[in-house]
Design a binder for these strands. Structure first.
Length: 717
DNA sequence: CTGGGCATCT
DNA sequence: AGATGCC
């Protein structure tokens, strides 16, 4: 969306004067009428920061265990050292080195498993949040990098700076020997370097993280320059050195945006170095890549990048995956899916939003094409299940998602033949903030839940991305010295509602009610808490078998309760595979986050009739609902065999294949659902959204199946 | 040609 | 639904 029209270089003036003219520019070669309009050179002289944390995973582990600071440390995922601390690097260990090679280089290397990204993810979002509390225009790139557009912050300081003040640079200046720098020629970049230094200091003091920063006039250059002095330093790039830094790149592949495939295609054209590309006729490039891509590539080679810093906000999808050498039985697949879903559902619950789409991805082994070839299938998530996720009935949700996943699995893999998987991924997407339960198709709820993809609301050319968008809609922290600011207003005290709001569902004790600042008219508080009259308990007991004392019943372990309520397992089909799949919902409540935030959801609806006009506003994401997670979960598995009863019919349009693959207790769950479904079928619309959100108070949190219609998901299709 | 994510474009 | 790119 950010392309063609505004793609041309409207870049910084400084660059234009110093560099553009010296390089054979394209327009001459482009004979015909210009395809791209040339934006008016609004001096939107941006100051962009790029932050890059040092060996991020290793840092996090060293914070968790300071003893690791003094030893060579490697973070291991499967057979690979994904990153390592600098002690290890001194001994020759590098990123993405195989474990065997690393151990060879450095026998004393200490390894920490890094496959579970939880801690890294948390720290990563703390970092982004922290930066956002100073300036809302923060864009994430992976877990350890952030871009910031600090133009307005710089301009403000500049305005406060008296004439003829001494400007200086903090940190390095690219291609300068730190003495000959005339900072007064570049006051904005100079101020930017000070802001960068302050932010790095803040990050260090508040989070204990060190990292590099690059200061430049666009994202491309900021990113390229940030890595020039490596651990825990910062570098500023002056416009007159743009061509130098670009020319210093060893190959086109080093240009961010030029990946493996693109580099190969370029090489086929004889293009290897950055200079090659700079001199290559745009027309020829267009033939290979098409207009917009060609122009963008060429611009990148020139150091031109007008792409705005687009606030990232909350993730648009949550996924969990695992890779392995070989997986070839349906049973293994099922267990892996269960495992992945358990953790993913927990994450989703903490997030607070409700996923509307589920996707299953696999990677099949194939001798020829080993490392690519992912395949995926997706389907909508029925509302009942989505609600169980948000309401915290996680095990219930997992139980109901598993059949969905298995259906998708069978759409991809013919399990009657041999198969060989090397990866499974489960993913929630189409994340909906808070919306009430969707009763029907339309209804007011659609107003709340209507999804204008949050990011897309932030599309404007860099032209409009200057101060107006920031000073108008947001406020960067205004203090002259960031370090002062942070000592008073920290993460926990700053108003979370504005973009500084909790980016992620971690921590933070925050009073539920939040002061709202900007854009009052747009807000749609969706906080309509659907308080559920507590009919929850009744339905359980009311269908108790005769001669069971309800009081006694309540005291029984939940598994037993369920068994009493659902004699389903006696079904012949179910019996056929009671052959114990030792399924245990090893539900790990490994983390107990204390805080929860409770923020009224704000959806900003944007008329974006003309994408080129109004800057609108950044999207504010806030986790819906309290979603407090009490570290105590109870449920345990009942591997036990149980009395068999007789009735219980197998519901029609159930895919027997899928069903038969499910673990016995999952089958029981489903059967239980089906049984309870019957009354609903009789009185179609009467009771439906009723319970299901059993507040998971201590005991009965576990798996209580409720009234949900699962039939359709078993329909063979 | 390795990991476990994420995003965007088609 | 896949390809591509980034970390």
């Amino acid at each position: 969306m950010d392309n063609s029209e505004d793609e041309v270089e409207e870049d910084e003036n400084e660059w234009r004067t110093s560099f553009v003219d010296s390089v054979p520019l394209s327009p001459a070669a482009v004979s015909g009428p210009r395809l791209y309009k040339i934006p008016e050179p609004t001096p939107a002289h941006r100051i962009i920061l790029h932050f890059d944390l040092d060996c991020f995973y290793a840092q996090v582990e060293m914070i968790r265990n300071p003893a690791l600071r003094e030893v060579p440390l490697g973070i291991q995922q499967k057979y690979i050292i994904v990153t390592c601390n600098y002690v290890a690097r001194e001994q020759g260990v590098t990123k993405l080195m195989s474990v065997t090679d690393a151990k060879e280089k450095c026998p004393q290397l200490v390894l920490v498993k890094g496959e579970d990204l939880t801690h890294y993810r948390e720290m990563s979002y703390k970092m982004t949040e922290l930066l956002m509390s100073y300036c809302p225009l923060v864009e994430r790139l992976g877990f350890d990098e952030n871009f910031m557009d600090i133009t307005s912050m710089v301009e403000r300081r500049l305005a406060q700076t008296s004439e003829s003040e001494n400007f200086s640079f903090k940190g390095h200046v690219y291609n300068h020997l730190s003495a000959d720098v005339k900072a007064s020629d570049h006051p904005r970049l100079a101020l930017g370097s000070h802001i960068a230094a302050e932010l790095r200091e803040v990050v260090h003091s508040k989070l204990g993280l060190t990292g590099c920063a690059g200061i430049a006039t666009n994202k491309l250059l900021a990113k390229l320059v940030s890595g020039t002095f490596k651990p825990n330093q910062q570098t500023t790039l002056l416009p007159e050195n743009v061509s130098v830094i670009m020319g210093d790149l060893s190959s086109l592949r080093k240009v961010p945006g030029v990946g493996h495939q693109t580099a190969k295609r370029l090489q086929a054209l004889g293009l290897v170095s950055v200079k090659d590309m700079q001199l290559y006729p745009l027309n020829d490039l267009v033939r290979e890549f098409g207009g917009p891509s060609a122009q963008r590539l060429k611009n990148l080679a020139l150091g031109v990048d007008d792409s705005p810093v687009t606030p990232t906000g909350a993730p648009q999808s949550l996924s969990d995956e695992d890779s392995f050498k070989k997986m070839s039985s349906t049973k293994e697949v099922l267990e892996k899916i269960q495992e992945l879903l358990s953790s993913l559902v927990e994450r989703m619950h903490k997030d607070g939003r409700q996923p509307q789409t589920f996707r299953l991805t696999t990677r099949k082994y194939s001798a020829t094409n080993k490392w690519f070839s992912r395949e995926s299938r997706q389907c909508p998530i029925p509302n009942h299940i989505g609600q169980k996720i948000t309401s915290g009935s996680s095990d219930d949700a997992v139980v109901q998602l598993v059949p969905l996943a298995m259906k998708l699995f069978h759409k991809m893999i013919d399990s009657s033949a041999a198969f060989h998987l090397t990866l499974i991924n489960v993913c929630f997407s189409n994340l909906q903030s808070r919306g009430a339960a969707v009763s029907g198709k339309g209804s007011i709820t659609s107003f709340f839940t209507q999804t204008t993809s949050p990011r897309k609301t932030q599309i404007f050319s860099s032209q409009s991305q200057d101060d107006s968008s920031q000073t108008g809609g947001h406020h960067c922290v205004d203090h002259q010295f960031i370090t002062q600011h942070i000592s008073q207003e920290t993460l926990t005290t700053k108003s979370p509602r504005s973009s500084g709001a909790a980016l992620y569902g971690f921590k933070r004790k925050q009073s539920p009610v939040v002061a709202e600042e900007d854009h009052p008219p747009q807000k749609v508080p969706c906080s309509t808490e659907r308080s559920n009259p507590d009919e929850t308990n009744n339905t359980m007991t009311q269908r108790l078998p005769p001669n069971v004392d309800p009081e006694v019943f309540r005291l029984l372990p939940e598994e037993i309760q369920k068994e009493l309520l659902s004699p389903a397992y006696t079904n012949s089909l179910a019996n056929s595979l009671v052959a114990e799949v030792p399924y245990t919902t090893k539900h790990k409540a490994q983390q107990k986050f204390t805080g929860s935030k409770n923020i009224t959801d704000v959806k900003e609806t944007v008329d974006k009739l003309d994408p080129s006009d109004l800057p609108t506003t950044v999207n504010h994401w806030s986790p819906a609902g309290p979603s407090l997670f009490q570290g105590e979960n109870v449920m345990e598995e009942a591997g036990l065999s149980l009395p068999r009863s007789s009735d219980c019919e197998f519901p029609g349009n159930v895919d027997p294949k899928v069903f038969s693959e499910l673990p016995p207790d999952v089958q029981r769950e489903l059967m239980s659902e089906w049984k309870q479904q019957e009354p609903v079928l009789k009185t179609p619309s009467s009771r439906k959204p009723g319970r299901s959100l059993m507040t998971k108070d201590r005991k009965s949190a576990g798996k209580s199946s409720q009234t949900n219609n699962l039939f359709k998901y078993f329909k063979p299709s």
